[in-house]
Amino acid sequence: MVNYIPSSIIFAAKIRAARGLLNWSQGELAERAGVSKQSVTRIEVGATDPRLSTMTALNEVIRAAGVELGDDANGIVQFSISREKLLPPSG
């Protein structure tokens, strides 16, 4: 049986995973989202509960790059990846 996991821990895992899919450093994610690198680091290690504005900025820049973060009705974390945005154009 899974015990309650704080949403900040789930968000941290989603951000780390999305960053990995995009091959971005913490600094690159922070710069693109307009937040400090320290904020990204603290979020990813679970040292802070991020502000709604910070979570929104991070989600928006990740989504714009082609990765959608979410969970299903059972709480399973899901990612959707846009092939058009992630893969270089062929031809």
Rank of each mutant, 00 (worst) to 15 (best):
V45D: 13
V35K: 01
A30V: 02
A57S: 10
R83A: 11
I81T: 10
E44Y: 02
L29P: 00
G27Q: 06
L52M: 12
S39G: 09
R19S: 09
L58N: 03
F79K: 04
T48Q: 09
G66V: 05
I5E: 15
I9L: 09
I76A: 14
S25I: 03
G20A: 05
S8C: 10
G34C: 05
R19A: 05
L69D: 00
T54R: 00
E60I: 01
V67F: 01
T41H: 12
L21R: 08
E60R: 10
K37C: 06
S53D: 14
V77L: 13
R63T: 07
T56H: 09
E84M: 06
G75I: 13
A57Y: 04
E84G: 06
K37A: 09
A30S: 02
T48K: 06
L21H: 15
T56I: 13
K14N: 08
L69T: 04
G20M: 05
E28T: 05
A13Y: 08
A47W: 06
A73W: 12
S39L: 15
G34K: 03
S39T: 15
V67I: 15
L52N: 08
G91T: 01
A64T: 06
G20R: 08
F79W: 07
E60V: 03
P89D: 13
S7F: 15
L86G: 05
N23K: 09
A17Q: 14
Q78M: 15
F79H: 06
R32V: 03
R16K: 14
A47Y: 03
R16G: 01
Q78C: 15
E31K: 02
E68S: 07
G34F: 04
A33C: 07
I81M: 07
L86K: 05
V61Q: 03
K85W: 02
D71M: 11
A30D: 00
I15K: 00
